[in-house]
């Protein structure tokens, strides 16, 4: 195992943390985050703002997020097209919403409010879904693009979520990536999924973050890089986390794909870095 450790730590482009894990007052978590933020660009990824929720955004939670943004000055802040809080209950999961003119209006309002209070442009992530809402009238990509157009927010393309949702809904994951608005994407997520079967015995993929990136997700990632050029890429592995060398080897696999993208698409890379 050859890990490129220097005195400054392993050679990695950036670190991403769940914002909510750093909402304690002090202690080890902040100590560690401070030392990471001194050495690497930091991405703050929220999992609790409930942007897709019916209710108003939680002002206390926005204040906690703003405190973190002020304290660590992250290079990026992202959240999900999902909800997690209903009335006072927080479900600790990214739950789905129907895509209608009404929910589009609400999500755009919430994104605008979050950006306004946090003072940053945020990225909004495409979800993993297991069912569809019969009332939905807007396609997911059109929905995300419309939120981005209305609020100026960027998008986070989770390639694992694309595979999970596409297989679950019998859609073509490559067509999803091909239709995704190229100029809005600020970051890519990769992860491993679990697989079970539904009541009809059909494939049901579950966003699990508990294993290495599976081959179909990695193929789609390469396809994404061919289309988009190199983009900041994060591996989400937050359940059954392995020893660091295995995690780092996974990051090296992604670094190699990114380097290939730089080689193959210098003009796309230049276009992006000029943007």
């Amino acid at each position: 195992m050859s890990i490129a450790f220097s005195k400054r730590g392993p050679r990695l482009g950036f670190f991403e943390v769940h914002a909510e894990n750093y909402m304690g007052e002090g202690g080890l978590p902040h100590h560690q985050l401070r030392s990471i933020a001194e050495r690497y660009p930091l991405s703050l990824h929220g999992v609790g703002l409930s942007i897709g929720g019916e209710g108003d955004l939680d002002r206390d939670h926005l204040k906690r997020l703003r405190r973190l943004v002020e304290r660590y000055r992250p290079a990026s802040f992202s959240e999900h097209l999902a909800w997690s809080t209903h009335e006072s209950a927080f479900f600790n999961d990214l739950l789905p919403l129907p895509y209608t003119p009404e929910t589009l209006e609400r999500v755009a309002r919430h994104v605008a409010e979050a950006q306004d209070i946090l003072g940053v442009r945020m990225l909004l992530e495409n979800p993993s879904t297991y069912l569809v809402f019969e009332e939905s009238t807007i396609d997911e990509i059109d929905f995300l693009a419309a939120v981005s157009n209305r609020t100026g927010c960027g998008l986070l393309l989770d390639v694992n979520n694309v595979v999970v949702s596409s297989i679950n809904h019998r859609l073509d994951p490559f067509a999803y990536v091909d239709r995704f608005p190229l100029d809005k994407v600020g970051e890519i997520h990769l992860a491993g999924y679990d697989e079970v079967t539904d009541e009809a015995g059909e494939r049901l993929l579950i966003d699990a973050h508990a294993s290495e990136i599976l081959p179909d997700v990695f193929d789609l990632y390469r396809h994404t890089l061919r289309r988009f050029g190199p983009l900041p890429t994060l591996i989400e592995w937050d359940n059954d986390v392995p020893e660091f060398p295995l995690l780092f080897a996974e990051a090296e696999r992604v670094t190699a794909a990114l380097q290939e993208a730089w080689r193959l698409q210098p003009e796309a890379a230049a276009r992006r870095s000029a943007a």
């Binding site: 297991y130 069912l131 569809v132 679950n168 019998r170 079970v196 079967t197 009809a200």
Partner: peptide, 14 residues
Amino acid sequence: GLSTRSGRRDAARF
């Protein structure tokens, strides 16, 4: 109001 894309209710998915 929740179903598979082919319109089938599936409790395993929920």
